[in-house]
Amino acid sequence: MGGRMVLTLLGRRSDDPSSKECCSIWELLAITLNDMVSEGLIEEEKLDSFNIPQYTPSPKEVRLEVQKQGSFSIDCLEVFGVNWSEIDSDFDPNVVSEDGGYHLSRCIRAVAEPLVVHHFGEEIIDEVFKRYKAQLAAHMSTENPTFVNVVISLKKIA
């Protein structure tokens, strides 16, 4: 009888699906893998066939999908950002990470490692994420990137 649900999705503020606000975390992994191809550590054909399926919806898209499905009403829909550096400080704004990108690279590794291992093999995985951490640290030192989260509170329609 009834019910509620709260969802948090990685998303974007913009209605433009090609917006850069959602993709740089994966672009940095692509740069890492591409560098390893140019050094002969990964086969180019393997890189060309590698894909991480991800879509980051806008608040408008989330709202439209809920309305289209029809089982829930929307109590609240909000968007907020989480600064990458906060992840690297264990979400403590008073802590400045001395090893930029460490926690964030571990977080992304938890998501991407099974895909990378399956596609490229176990033997390169440590090197991929060592280089990826360096890419993250460099990116974080010149920009202030954030993850955009879409949070929606839903109520079951009786």
Results as ranks from 00 to 15, higher is better:
P53V: 15
E44V: 11
E86F: 09
E98F: 08
V111D: 01
L64P: 13
N94M: 07
G101M: 12
L41P: 01
W84S: 02
C107V: 05
Q54H: 13
V82M: 02
N94F: 09
D75E: 03
G121Q: 10
L104F: 02
S71N: 13
I108V: 08
D48F: 09
G81W: 07
W84N: 01
V111I: 02
Q67I: 14
P93H: 12
G81Q: 04
L115R: 09
D35A: 00
Q135Y: 02
Y102P: 01
S85C: 10
D48V: 07
E123Y: 05
I125S: 15
P114A: 15
V117L: 13
W84R: 01
D48P: 06
F50M: 04
L64T: 13
I74M: 03
E98I: 07
S105V: 08
G40C: 02
C76T: 15
I108E: 14
N83P: 12
H139V: 06
G40A: 03
Q135P: 01
K46G: 00
F80Y: 14
P93M: 14
N34Y: 13
L115S: 08
S58G: 15
A138E: 09
V128C: 01
E78F: 04
E86L: 12
T56P: 00
R106M: 11
N51C: 10
S97N: 07
L115V: 10
V62I: 00
A112K: 11
W84I: 04
G81R: 12
F91W: 11
Y132C: 00
E123H: 09
R106Q: 13
S38Q: 11
F120W: 13
E39A: 12
D126V: 04
E123C: 08
G100D: 06
D35L: 00
F129S: 00
E123I: 07
F120S: 05
E61M: 07
S58E: 14
P114S: 12
A138W: 06
R131W: 02
A138G: 11
